[in-house]
């Protein structure tokens, strides 16, 4: 997601995933995908460290970042769906 808050910028590599139509994407949907993608990064980290899941310092940092992204997105999602 872009830091400027644009709704048009969720991308997987060069694939723009959402909002082909240029209408702007609902914030709730945006945050939903952001949370799912952050958890996916965490999933891959678990794969890379199987079977013991002993994370190096760098991997621990990656895990913390992914969890923080997921929590932030879920927190926003919760707010948006209660509005």
């Amino acid at each position: 997601m872009a830091a400027n808050g644009s709704f048009l910028s969720i991308k997987i590599n060069n694939i723009k995933l959402l909002d082909y139509w240029g209408l702007g994407m609902d914030n709730a949907v945006d945050n939903l995908f952001e949370a799912l993608f952050a958890l996916t990064d965490l999933r891959v980290l678990l794969r890379e460290t199987a079977p013991l899941h002993k994370l190096s310092a760098e991997q621990q940092m990656q895990a913390r970042e992914a969890l923080a992204r997921a929590k932030a997105a879920l927190s926003k999602l919760e707010e948006e769906l209660q509005e």
């Binding site: 997987i12 694939i15 799912l36 993608f37 996916t40 990064d41 999933r43 891959v44 199987a50 079977p51």
Partner: peptide
Amino acid sequence: ENFINIQPIQAAGRLTAEAMKALI
């Protein structure tokens, strides 16, 4: 996620994180 998988035909077809996101 739980094991190291040495299955002969599965190894290089494991998805990247980006591919998993694309499937989602």
